[in-house]
Amino acid sequence: MDSIDDDDDVPQLSSHALAALQEFYAEQAQQNTEHLEPEHKFSVGAVEEDWQLSQFWYSDETALNLAKELIQSCGENGRIACVSTPSIYQKLKGLSAENISVCLLEYDRRFSVYGDDYVFYDYNDPLNLPESLEQHSFDLVIADPPYLSEECLRKTAKTIKFLARSKVLLCTGAVMEDLAATILGLKICKFVPKHTSSLANEFRCYSNYPLGLDIQV
Rank of each mutant, 00 (worst) to 15 (best):
L104D: 01
Y118I: 06
E150L: 08
S137V: 04
S137P: 05
N128V: 12
I142V: 15
E131R: 06
A157E: 01
T156R: 04
Y147N: 11
P146D: 09
E131D: 15
F162C: 09
P130D: 01
P126Y: 04
K155Q: 12
I160T: 03
L129W: 00
T159S: 03
L127K: 00
E150F: 05
F120N: 03
Y123C: 12
Y107T: 13
E134A: 15
K161L: 15
L105Y: 02
L153Q: 00
Y147M: 11
Y123M: 12
C103W: 15
K155C: 02
P126C: 00
L105G: 06
Y121K: 01
L129V: 01
R109V: 14
P145W: 02
L133A: 03
F120P: 03
D139T: 05
F138C: 05
F111I: 12
P145K: 09
P130R: 01
T159L: 02
S112E: 15
N124F: 12
R110V: 10
F138M: 07
D116S: 13
D116W: 05
Y123P: 07
F162T: 06
E134N: 08
I160A: 00
F138I: 06
L133T: 01
H136R: 15
N128Q: 14
F162P: 02
S137N: 03
F111C: 12
D139A: 04
Y107S: 13
Y107L: 15
E134R: 13
D116K: 11
V119Y: 09
L133S: 00
K161W: 09
Y123F: 13
R109F: 14
E131K: 09
P145Q: 12
S149V: 05
L148P: 06
R109P: 08
I142G: 06
D144Q: 13
L140S: 01
E134K: 11
H136Y: 12
F111Y: 14
I142P: 09
E106G: 06
Y114W: 11
F162A: 08
L140M: 03
L148D: 05
C103L: 13
A157L: 04
F138D: 06
N128W: 05
E151P: 07
E131G: 11
A143N: 03
L153A: 02
D122T: 07
V119K: 05
G115W: 02
F138K: 04
L140A: 02
G115L: 03
D144V: 10
Y123N: 08
S112R: 15
H136M: 11
V113M: 13
L105P: 06
E134I: 07
T159K: 02
L127P: 00
L127W: 00
P145C: 09
E134H: 10
